[in-house]
């Protein structure tokens, strides 16, 4: 049981801006919450490879293919940084991975939408990675040392992801009428799901206050979302693409862009598993995991035999 004195001392460390390291004392609930959000973050990076991987073989040029391959490989890397950081909390990789492949651990809902055209790849880079940067820049200052460091590493790579998407989208918006239409269509489909990436409104987000108190996060969902919208309005204007929200208006007083009501019913239905691609994503991950089992076993066996041979020789 965590005593009040321990909890107070822990809170004092957080309030002083100290980082918590794996072997330090921490409240059981802090550990649990970290495992939950860090592993969700890791699963999201891994599942995030699927919608983009879908287009690698059909990239419009060799250059775009190399870029997309490198980006998808980075997503795998991000997943691995985060799993590695989560394991420092005393939980095994296998348990984390099986938690979402067979259990009900969540990953970001955004990856339960399909990528219908190559313009979706542009928009994922621009909007989805753009939103991820906003979130991860905050998490790079998280109170848990390994999580903060993993996010710092991720942020350095994420800006390449966003820029390659934005550049491609700008190119499409300068292209033929059909290309412009395709680009606009992708923006229309991804805009609202991207805004949902920041999570429910603060009034419906029971975990937020606690995560902020413990310094895991430093901004609320709505604050992050607003920051993102303000930036994206400017970026959309610069490339002549429209954001599909008739209610977008600039508020002179606050200096922020006000936006329309987010379709939360859709959000909750995707979270609960009824998005367009939920089943397919999980099936793809199960298949990869199970088909890889013999490879993992064989590699282990090879390592064992190699070691035996070496011991015999010496």
């Amino acid at each position: 049981m965590d005593t009040q004195q321990q909890l107070d001392q822990f809170q004092e460390r957080i309030d002083n801006g100290e980082k918590i390291e794996p072997k330090d004392w921490m409240p059981e609930r802090y550990r649990k919450q970290l495992i939950r959000i860090m592993s969700q973050h890791a699963h999201s990076e891994i599942v995030g490879m699927l919608p983009e991987g879908n287009w690698i073989t059909r990239a419009p040029s060799l250059k775009r293919k190399m870029v997309l391959l490198a980006k998808v490989q980075d997503e795998a890397g991000h997943g691995l940084y985060l799993y590695s950081a989560t394991e420092t909390l005393g939980i095994e990789r296998r348990e984390l991975v099986e938690g979402y492949i067979y259990g009900n651990a969540k990953y970001s809902s955004i990856f339960n939408y399909p990528t219908l055209t190559y313009a979706d790849i542009c928009v994922i880079g621009w909007l989805v990675d753009g939103a991820a940067i906003v979130n991860q820049t905050m998490l790079a200052k998280s109170s848990y040392g390994p999580y903060a460091r993993a996010n710092l590493r991720i942020c350095k790579e994420e800006s390449f992801h966003k820029k390659q998407g934005y550049e491609m989208l700008a190119k499409m918006m300068e292209g033929t009428e059909a290309q412009q239409k395709m680009a606009q269509d992708a923006v229309n489909r991804w805009w609202w799901p991207t805004l949902m990436m920041f999570g429910p409104n603060d009034s419906d987000s029971p975990n937020s206050a606690e995560l902020i108190k413990w310094g895991v996060k430093s901004k609320t969902n709505d604050e992050l979302r607003q920051h993102f919208v303000d930036r994206m309005v400017m970026e959309a204007e610069a490339i002549n693409v429209e954001l599909p929200d008739p209610d977008l208006t600039y508020n002179e007083e606050t200096g922020h862009w006000e936006f329309g009501e987010i379709p939360w019913d859709e959000f909750w239905s995707v979270v609960k598993g009824d998005g367009p691609m939920n089943r397919e994503r999980i099936k793809a991950r199960q298949k990869a995991y199970e088909s890889g089992e013999w490879v993992r076993e064989a590699a282990m066996e090879y390592a064992r035999k190699k070691k035996l041979r070496k011991e015999k020789a010496s």
Partner: peptide
């Protein structure tokens, strides 16, 4: 930097 899983030192 962090950690990795691998069956042997080479991998």
């Amino acid at each position: 930097a962090g950690s990795v899983h691998a069956p042997d030192s080479e991998m």
